[in-house]
Computed example of a mutant assay.
Amino acid sequence: MRDMGVRVGHWTGEHTGCTVLLFEEAVLASGEVRGGAPASREIELLDPLRSNTGVDAVLLTGGSAFGLAAADGVMQWLAERGRGVPTPGGTVPIVPTLGLYDLDGTGNVPAAAQGYEACDAAMAPFEPALDGPVGAGRGATVGQWRGVTLPSGLRTATVSAGPVTVTALAAVNAFGEPGPLDRGLLRPEGFAAGGFGRNTTIGVVVTNARLDKVECALVAQGAHDGLAKAISPVHTRMDGDAFIAAATGALPASVDVVRALAVEAVAEAVGDAA
């Protein structure tokens, strides 16, 4: 993703982790939450009605709501480098953060130190692995809707139309699973798995096109459309599915084209989790 001005870094623990996307300069971004049980931080400012005009990084993290504290380390790392919104008291880095549920009862969750470490890792001379049980995808699983737990992880895909490119990066931790819905497993009284599972698919789509904040919101909607193509059942009350869309480039492009690419990129990335 470095060709689009994005550096990616992970901290990977035994059962959890976090993944940071550092932008070379603040970029326009928006997002959308469709799942019923989200864990997030600084998402409201992505609304096109809010005054924010750029984000410095995006963090995807395990640890459920506890893992949101990893964003403190990302903010510290950026502030030390003068990144953020200037204020009389110093710069304030803008780091929207999405969390997924991978708690294992040990109390080990990403914290500020791990967010900081992920930023350091993003500055390594090589691009890290973007697929598999790494970073925010370390503890990801799928399939609880039918009473099983299948390993998953972080997934990525890039699609293009001419010079316009969209890359999707997702931590696939869904209550459902990739593939078509087996309707025979649905019961009127509810899912066979019953209660709360290890759930939520979170991700980022990045394009080299020039978009405004409203258009980024439309692309984030497209990311969810891609998720709906790949996961069944999707956006359940047990999930906190959320996507952020960021535009890093100056390439003119129709938002409808970028949104269509986002749909395909997310569907391709998440579908590979099967």
Rank of each mutant, 00 (worst) to 15 (best):
residue 33 V to Y: 03
residue 82 G to H: 10
residue 33 V to I: 15
residue 60 L to V: 11
residue 203 G to K: 02
residue 74 V to N: 12
residue 250 A to K: 13
residue 90 G to D: 06
residue 226 G to I: 02
residue 140 A to G: 05
residue 66 F to Y: 15
residue 267 A to R: 06
residue 126 F to W: 14
residue 226 G to T: 02
residue 135 G to W: 01
residue 223 A to H: 10
residue 173 N to I: 13
residue 18 C to Y: 11
residue 122 A to N: 01
residue 181 L to V: 08
residue 19 T to R: 06
residue 193 A to I: 10
residue 190 G to V: 12
residue 200 T to I: 13
residue 56 D to L: 08
residue 101 Y to V: 07
residue 51 S to Y: 15
residue 228 A to F: 00
residue 207 T to Q: 01
residue 272 D to V: 01
residue 204 V to N: 02
residue 58 V to Y: 02
residue 268 E to A: 15
residue 20 V to F: 13
residue 82 G to L: 11
residue 148 V to K: 15
residue 60 L to S: 12
residue 263 V to I: 14
residue 245 A to G: 10
residue 29 A to V: 08
residue 39 A to L: 05
residue 56 D to C: 12
residue 27 V to Q: 04
residue 151 P to E: 03
residue 119 C to L: 03
residue 70 A to G: 07
residue 16 T to K: 10
residue 62 G to R: 13
residue 163 P to Y: 09
residue 70 A to S: 05
residue 39 A to T: 06
residue 272 D to L: 07
residue 136 A to H: 08
residue 11 W to G: 05
residue 50 R to F: 04
residue 187 R to M: 15
residue 70 A to Y: 00
residue 203 G to R: 01
residue 261 L to Y: 13
residue 124 A to L: 09
residue 160 S to N: 07
residue 136 A to T: 08
residue 141 T to C: 10
residue 129 A to K: 14
residue 90 G to V: 05
residue 114 Q to V: 08
residue 145 W to Q: 09
residue 146 R to F: 04
residue 110 P to R: 05
residue 159 V to L: 13
residue 146 R to A: 10
residue 48 P to I: 11
residue 257 V to I: 01
residue 142 V to K: 01
residue 162 G to M: 14
residue 100 L to D: 09
residue 86 P to G: 01
residue 1 M to Q: 01
residue 254 S to V: 08
residue 86 P to T: 11
residue 137 G to N: 15
residue 247 A to R: 02
residue 8 V to C: 10
residue 246 A to L: 04
residue 1 M to P: 05
residue 49 L to Q: 14
residue 8 V to E: 00
residue 141 T to Q: 02
residue 232 S to P: 04
residue 175 F to H: 06
residue 124 A to C: 08
residue 40 S to A: 12
residue 249 G to S: 12
residue 21 L to H: 03
residue 57 A to K: 08
residue 4 M to L: 15
residue 12 T to I: 01
residue 242 A to D: 02
residue 58 V to W: 02
residue 94 I to E: 09
residue 4 M to E: 00
residue 195 G to I: 14
residue 168 A to R: 02
residue 168 A to K: 00
residue 200 T to Y: 02
residue 269 A to N: 09
residue 49 L to G: 01
residue 188 P to K: 00
residue 266 V to M: 02
residue 177 E to A: 12
residue 268 E to N: 14
residue 94 I to W: 00
residue 142 V to N: 03
residue 142 V to S: 07
residue 259 R to K: 11
residue 266 V to A: 10
residue 87 T to E: 03
residue 128 P to F: 04
residue 6 V to D: 07
residue 159 V to Q: 06
residue 99 G to K: 07
residue 170 A to Q: 00
residue 121 A to N: 10
residue 7 R to M: 05
residue 207 T to I: 15
residue 143 G to Y: 05
residue 106 T to Y: 00
residue 60 L to H: 12
residue 125 P to D: 14
